[in-house]
Design a protein around this nucleic acid. Structure first.
Lengths: 175, 175
DNA sequence: AAATTACGTCAATAGTACTGACATAATTCC
DNA sequence: GGAATTATGTCAGTACTATTGACGTAATTT
């Protein structure tokens, strides 16, 4: 059972006494696990995975972004994106349009089908968030927004602000 | 570029007007991505992945849990756990102890080495959380805790309460 | 004694990711 | 105009995490 030179078992639980915030670390894990489980079930019907969801989401959020921009947001490599993007194009969820200024670029846009799927995937997630805000008595979602934004690496926060969240009205300055 | 029967590109961004909370959906994605990137870098030095981290975390949080209990918390299959657990045992981060009441069971405990690694992995995550609470001016972490807990499926919230978070003092009533 | 439970393991497969290399077309630089 | 660079696509090989299905063993329960 225990190999000869094995260390002795520690029988006490690790706690926050070391100044480490295990409570929130663990909650974040559970919350994200369940947050992603909603769309996962829908995606399975299409033979898609989480990667397809992420691509679909950002193409809907920033229609016309290029492949390079998408790679930058997702923080994955071109090769990882290739298969997923090809499947979404083949199934008519996303279309490529040749860049107007630079014809090497491929601008990515959702089709009506892709828009519908993106909404269907987001719906249960949004419902979960709304319920959580109500259940937890958090009247101001701004608190949660600020916290989550502060959890993001400062140098990457620029990515978030590309799409005007919801309060600010208009700045889609893309062309 | 566009295949013959392809749908037409939609050029407007998806927004919150559909009653969907895209702002928080997206923030949650970015926040979790960066939250996990800290330990990922440390794990790479050991040839470990995220799966090893999760196992190590829960064995440290609930020393003496059985394989079946671990599977239930992680929501993965026995076969998926097998390789990861074996590696952690072979590298002397975790030891198995035959169950006292039921000798079929394997109680899992961290070694001193496993405890140290778990702490090292949690440290940057805790630092990020503390910084986020300060940056966002969220004085009461209770708000964040309540929100995150409310994001978890109700029927799975029991898993969270096994370890007394941090406010309540002592109730490790395991033996 | 038979059925069930807890665990381990073997085989095959899938999804997502990686690195490295190479090709093509278009743009920019000199 | 020719060379270098850029944007994209693709091929080959590999790794990690996960899956289902099947089988074996020891221990407990019925």
């Amino acid at each position: 059972m225990t190999s000869p030179a094995a260390g002795k078992p520690i029988r006490t639980a690790i706690t926050d006494e070391d100044g480490i915030d295990f409570a929130i670390i663990e909650l974040f894990f559970f919350a994200y696990r369940d947050f992603t489980s909603d769309p996962d079930q829908i995606l399975a019907d299409y033979g898609f995975g989480r990667a397809h969801h992420r691509v679909l989401h950002f193409v809907n959020r920033r229609p016309g972004l290029t492949v390079a921009e998408l790679l930058d947001v997702l923080k994955i490599t071109k090769q990882s994106l290739a298969r997923v993007l090809k499947q979404l194009i083949d199934t008519d969820h996303i279309v490529q349009v040749q860049g107007p200024r630079d014809r090497r670029q491929r601008e990515l846009y959702p089709t009506a089908k892709g828009r519908a799927l993106a909404l269907a995937l987001a719906r249960p997630q949004s419902r979960r968030i709304r319920a959580a805000l109500e259940d937890s008595g958090t009247t101001e979602r701004a608190t949660i927004e600020r916290f989550l934004e502060a959890m993001v690496n400062p140098e990457l926060r620029a990515q978030i602000d590309i799409v005007p969240a919801q309060t600010s009205g208009k700045n889609h300055g893309d062309h």
